[in-house]
Amino acid sequence: MLTCKQASQLISQSLDRPLSWSSRLQLRFHLVICDACTRFKQQLNQLRSAIQRVTLHTESDSTITLSKEAKARIASAIDSKHH
């Protein structure tokens, strides 16, 4: 039997690689009887989609701009590279 600690590691890894047949089976058995790990699995999925939303949110926030100073720094870096 998997412990919750082991199950949580497999759940995380399943986002990064295909689990072996026997790990999948053990994990499935564990999830049938364990609400906490089932919720953990759901949380990791929610987390992943939330992170992507945060990224999009920042990316499309037009109030975030390069400061005048930053633009000037970059422009002078471009100049010095070219002359």
């Binding site: 990224t55 920042t58 975030i64």
Partner: peptide, 8 residues
């Protein structure tokens, strides 16, 4: 580009 980089 700045927002794209900042988001990541």
């Amino acid at each position: 580009l700045y927002r794209f980089a900042l988001a990541r």
